[in-house]
């Protein structure tokens, strides 16, 4: 996997000037891959890991979810209290059913979240994440989106971001610090 590291380090790290707001101050309402409504208050008292993506994404998203799955396996039962969510930036195509088929390929603790465009926009605003639609020839489109993984402490405070290019050796220790 040396090549992956080599390619990832070519990219510039994330530099967000504004930090995500605490989970308790977020105002979005989304639907999970099993059709249940989820609000930030449902996550009170639990550590949180959130990633923005979409299921039509062939490279960044499955790679991140594979990485997350490996981290969760390494943490084992320690990560059972951790909320792990993929928030779709492509709700037009990512219905709860579509998300269900997708997340079933990864660690079962990962949930998929989607919803109306304005709720997804609210979630992105709360996390200080960005995304934009990129139209391609023939009516098809793809999405550019924030690639980092957001971590929050059990009390809802923002902890840190695991950048996409970041050496994965640092991910699990970062996660452990978030869990406690």
């Amino acid at each position: 996997m040396l090549g992956v590291g080599a390619y990832r380090t070519r990219n510039r790290p994330a530099r967000s000037e504004v930090l995500p707001v605490p989970i308790g101050q977020m105002t979005w309402t989304l639907t999970d891959h099993q059709g249940r409504l989820v609000r930030p208050s449902d996550w009170a008292g639990r550590p949180v890991m959130v990633f923005f993506g979409f299921t039509w994404c062939p490279d960044v998203c499955p790679t991140t979810l594979s990485d997350i799955s490996l981290w969760l396996e390494e943490l084992g039962a320690d990560a059972d209290r951790l909320i792990v969510a993929l928030i779709s930036v492509d709700p037009e195509r990512d219905t709860p059913d579509v998300l269900a088929g997708y997340v079933s390929n990864f660690d079962p603790r990962i949930i998929g979240l989607t919803g109306p465009a304005d709720e997804v926009a609210q979630a992105a605003a709360d996390f200080r994440a960005t995304y934009r639609r990129v139209d391609k020839e023939g009516g098809d489109y793809t999405m550019d989106h924030t690639a980092g993984v957001f971590l929050f402490h059990p009390d809802g405070r923002f902890a840190s971001i695991i950048d996409f290019h970041e050496d994965r050796r640092f991910a699990v220790p970062k996660l452990r610090r978030t869990l406690s």
Binding site: G3, V4, A6, Y7, R8, R10, P13, A14, R15, S16, D59, V60, P62, T63, T130, V134, T142, D144, H145, T146, A147, G148, I161, D163, F164, H165
Partner: peptide
């Protein structure tokens, strides 16, 4: 911090080197 995947006109394969098409690149 924002991922995009632009079209690559070509992927350089320099003399004496290895190049990988790999996740994240």
């Amino acid at each position: 911090g924002i991922a995009s995947m632009p079209h690559a006109m070509s992927v350089p394969v320099p003399a004496g080197q290895s190049v990988q098409l790999a996740p994240g690149g």
